[in-house]
Nucleic acid binder design. Structure first.
Ligand SMILES: [Mn+2]
Ligand SMILES: [Mn+2]
Ligand SMILES: [Mn+2]
Ligand SMILES: [Mn+2]
Lengths: 219, 219
DNA sequence: ATATTAAGTTAGGGATACCTAACAAATTAA
DNA sequence: TTAATTTGTTAGGTATCCCTAACTTAATAT
């Protein structure tokens, strides 16, 4: 049974792996905020468990077993976030921190019951997919708002960042998952967008913001 | 911030303290299923934290601070049990094991929200009191069913054991908190009781069972 | 091609939380 | 009052998870 630290390493490894399957020890250390010797030591333990491949001075990679183990932690994390949001009424900017702890509970019936109460959700409060019990992810091919053309209307489906500051910015702008957004105008100079959604008309979204919004084209 | 192990030691210490404020290292070790040297070492750490009094070869006792710290863990445990039972629909025989883990989460807002959703309960699914935020317990003076006289009618208020086997026995007998029980007869020989409650008439409860049921006299 | 920089490793610690074996102190029984 | 038993302590380990300092290997720049 993986320890809390191990589960956090697996999640970080999965995240880095999805960007580049050749993971450096340094970036892993940065993500987890631990020193390089700490990572070095832990990686040897993970290798012994069969979750990563490790050879001295070479980049780390996740094994199939490691990917599955990581997916199961991510599953617990995202189910927890969904539970905190849907059942307990927490805001999407509050759920991550608490889920970071709940994800380490060792109780299948607890997570099964959560899943059941939520009606077997397939995504978390930030639109990220919840892997199934076997660790399989549903791949969504959402588009990035910043790449949508003028005049198009889209629905907000997911976020590429779940940073608390970003989520609070979206709260202030009253942008949430499901919001139907029309791109009125794109400023050539800085690629900022003028958009309308709900009761908001002609709201300006900067390029970095629009680049973090994943959408589906409606028309 | 106390570690998980520390929180479990505090709870065990509180339990033993309530039976006898002079706690032996051996009984603490037995309750926590750890060796005596392990307890010895941990007690020195707890003493350094100001939670227990410790002198070589002398019995351990909880300080006021220790009692409060313990009460706050018990509060988290019992709120969790109540949440698991009332909100998530778990049986009273299932909640303890999961709460044993949830109690260690570090998040005030999480437990506050639980408390709120439950309507600020004062007792857990087994009838045990939930201490307040300052660590104060409400003392109930319930009577023990085995000491009730023939012909009396009582209401089941709490249990003196939350052992899983015992709870499953009560489930089978359809005895739950709130059950109104009439003592029809007491057998002199073994002190077993013939009782009636709900749809059940003339059910025999052995003395050890009746001694674990805490009741309030109705008539 | 060499020098500089970045990445990874070793060596040597520390804290927590557990263990067994051996022994000492205190209590209880004979 | 001894002897036996129980209780508590020390000594010496182990595993996990973290650290800094110093070093080596690999990659990058000049
Ligand atoms: Mn999250
Ligand atoms: Mn975590
Ligand atoms: Mn309990
Ligand atoms: Mn616990």
């Amino acid at each position: 049974m993986p320890s809390q630290a191990t589960e956090n390493y697996l999640k970080a490894l999965y995240y880095l792996y999805s960007k580049n399957p050749e993971i450096s020890l340094t970036e892993l250390g940065q993500r987890l905020e631990v020193s390089k010797p700490t990572v070095n030591e832990m990686i040897k333990r993970l290798e012994k468990q069969g979750w990563v491949t490790y050879e001295r001075y070479k980049p780390i990679s996740l094994t199939e077993e490691g990917k599955k183990a990581a997916a199961l932690v991510i599953r617990k994390h995202r189910l927890s976030e969904m539970f905190l949001s849907e059942i307990m009424g927490f805001g999407w900017e509050e759920v991550h921190q608490i889920a970071e702890q709940i994800e380490h509970l060792k109780s299948d019936i607890f997570f099964d019951r959560m899943n059941e109460m939520l009606g077997f959700p397939t995504s978390d409060p930030h639109g990220s997919p919840i892997p199934d019990r076997e660790g399989n992810f549903i791949v969504n091919n959402y588009k990035i708002l910043s790449q949508i053309a003028e005049g198009k209307t889209v629905e907000l489906k997911a976020l590429r960042s779940s940073d608390k500051e970003f989520l609070m910015y979206l709260n202030k702008k009253e942008i949430r998952l499901g919001s139907v957004i029309t791109v009125n105008n794109i400023e050539k100079f800085d690629k900022s967008m003028t958009v309308s959604y709900g009761k908001q008309t002609n709201v300006i979204l900067s390029q970095p913001v629009a680049a973090k919004l994943l959408v589906d084209l409606i028309s």
